[in-house]
Amino acid sequence: MSTWRIALLVAGKDLRVERRSRVVTNQVVPFAAVTMVMFAFALDADAVLQRVAPGLVWLATLFSLLVLVQRSYAIETDDGALDALRVAGVDPAALFWGKALALAVQLAVLEVILIGTAVVLYGAEVRAEGLVLLVTTLVTATCSLAVVGTLYGGLAAGFRGRETLLPLLVLPVVAPVLIGATRAVEAALGTVPGAVVSEGWPWVGLLAVFAVAFGVGGTLAFGPLIDE
């Protein structure tokens, strides 16, 4: 079986498990929505909320990413499936890309919901001229977060206290994604006075480079990371 066939198999399995358990639907989405509401309570003023809406969307996404990654590896470690995959000689690169793909799908759904929440709660507006930039930003940022989350989730999965270790590992690493995605979405939505759409594209470039770098790194390092 080729690497990509195995990757699709693993992604399909992860998404099927999610469809059965409904953890994203019943826990992660409500968690992200509550986070957005709490931001609104804390900042209160409409003008401020509208201005910072992109940053709040990505912060809520990062917090939700941690929950998603924990869940993604919990299903692998509950009954020793990750060990069994390793023992069975399943290509670690395929495992990495399969889990990253499933994570990306779940993140993408979540981000769309969060953007919608920002529109409803914070009064953010999706402009037609910024739509391409917005979609491209979502795609590249999602890929970046998915590969980083999968890589560090695999690293943390082998440790005791992984629930607290994962945020410590992931959050500093994804800081460039938070900054880049926030700036790009600000440009796309025009939440900063005087901002133009073209100012967002260099940030998309940064996100793309980040995704490629961690994608290559994950492909090479995932095997040794999950190995003993």
């Binding site: 198999l9 399995k13 059965r20 299903i75 509950d78 009954d79 499936a81 069994a84 995959l85």
Partner: peptide, 22 residues
Amino acid sequence: GHANGLYTDLTVSENVRFWGAT
């Protein structure tokens, strides 16, 4: 080993199909 290496949210046949597909 002591663990079965199964996905507990999937059915018996889905687990066997997954491992066979690898």
